[in-house]
């Protein structure tokens, strides 16, 4: 029972972070129909920026987060303006490839400035553990779940209530109609990239806190694909369901069966979903038969 609870909490924590990372991915896909292969590198850059501000510059936590957000915003705007905007109207292969190129570039830049060694960062979240139904559950995982839940709720409210959120949904729904209503599609595109970079920053910092600040953060980003395919490429609630499902599945397979198998099981799920229900659980079904 205690193993089960532990795996449950670990899985939910992983899933919550995955949901955050996937949120950025879905935002970009929804608003700009770009598949962003560099989402994992956004996590990486976010975590390293936070590390720079928090550890290397010795800023207090709040200031370090602010620095991270500013850098993520700049990164989002620059990437949208100089890399993705010239690619508007190109075929999907080119757009996928340009984000792959971007991911290689970001990864290499991080490696150039910080090297490949693991950086030690003082724990932000408390390290203790609590007894819960007879199991010892680490406190920081529980807090990760909580923080991710708060951030995801905040994003959901933003989409439902705020002007910009509604404008983003309008652009996602129909670009031309949104334009005629006076919405600046360019600004919304930039906003989508900024929000993606910021949510990746949060995910990256949380992930770095429960694991370590190193290059493996980017590899975690590839898991975004099973998550979004499961939940539906253009669905915000889908990222939560997909993220939690994949996070739990990974932890349970690794705990009960084989840790090696856990690395590949998300992709097996991905293939099965693509064969059975390619638009995912919550994805919008576009009728395009081949």
């Amino acid at each position: 029972m205690s193993t089960f609870l532990n795996l449950l909490v670990y899985g939910l924590a992983d899933g919550a972070i995955l949901a955050l990372a996937a949120l950025g991915f879905v935002l970009i896909y929804k608003a700009t129909s770009v598949i962003n292969f560099a989402q994992g590198e956004f996590l990486l850059v976010g975590a390293y920026m936070f590390y720079t501000a928090f550890v290397m510059m010795g800023l207090p936590l709040i200031a370090a987060v602010a620095v991270g957000v500013v850098v993520a915003t700049i990164l989002g705007v620059v990437v949208e303006r100089f890399i993705l905007r010239p690619m508007i109207g190109e075929d999907p292969i080119s757009i996928i490839m340009v984000t792959i190129g971007l991911s290689m570039l970001l990864n290499a830049l991080v490696q150039m400035f910080y090297g490949t060694s693991v950086k030690s960062q003082p724990a932000i979240l408390p390290r203790g553990s609590v007894d819960f139904l007879g199991a010892t559950v680490p406190l920081n995982r529980l807090l990760v779940i909580l923080i991710a839940a708060v951030v995801l709720t905040a994003f959901t409210i933003f989409f439902r209530r705020s002007r910009h959120g509604i404008a983003m949904r309008a652009v996602a729904d129909d670009q031309q109609a949104a334009m005629t209503m006076g919405i600046s599609v360019r600004r919304i595109f930039a906003l989508a990239w900024v929000l993606a970079a910021v949510s990746a920053l949060i995910a990256g910092v949380l992930l770095a806190d429960i694991s370590a600040v190193d290059q493996n953060l980017a590899a975690f980003g590839l898991l975004v694909f099973p998550v979004v395919i499961l939940g539906g490429l253009d669905s915000v609630p889908g990222t939560i369901v997909g993220g939690l499902t994949i996070g739990l599945l990974k932890q349970f397979v690794s705990g009960y069966l084989d840790p090696g198998l856990a690395t590949v099981i998300p992709y097996v799920v991905l293939v099965l979903i693509l064969l059975v229900k390619p638009y995912g659980i919550f994805g919008e079904t576009r009728i395009e038969r081949v």
């Binding site: 598949i35 099973p226 992709y267 693509l274 064969l275």
Partner: peptide, 24 residues
């Protein structure tokens, strides 16, 4: 085979999965 039903982005992701599975 997935290519029979999938196009563009979806096919890219499906082949990414096939890469991961073969690698595993």
């Amino acid at each position: 085979l997935p290519g029979l039903r999938l196009k563009g982005l979806y096919l890219a992701i499906a082949t990414l999965a096939s890469q991961q599975i073969i690698e595993f």
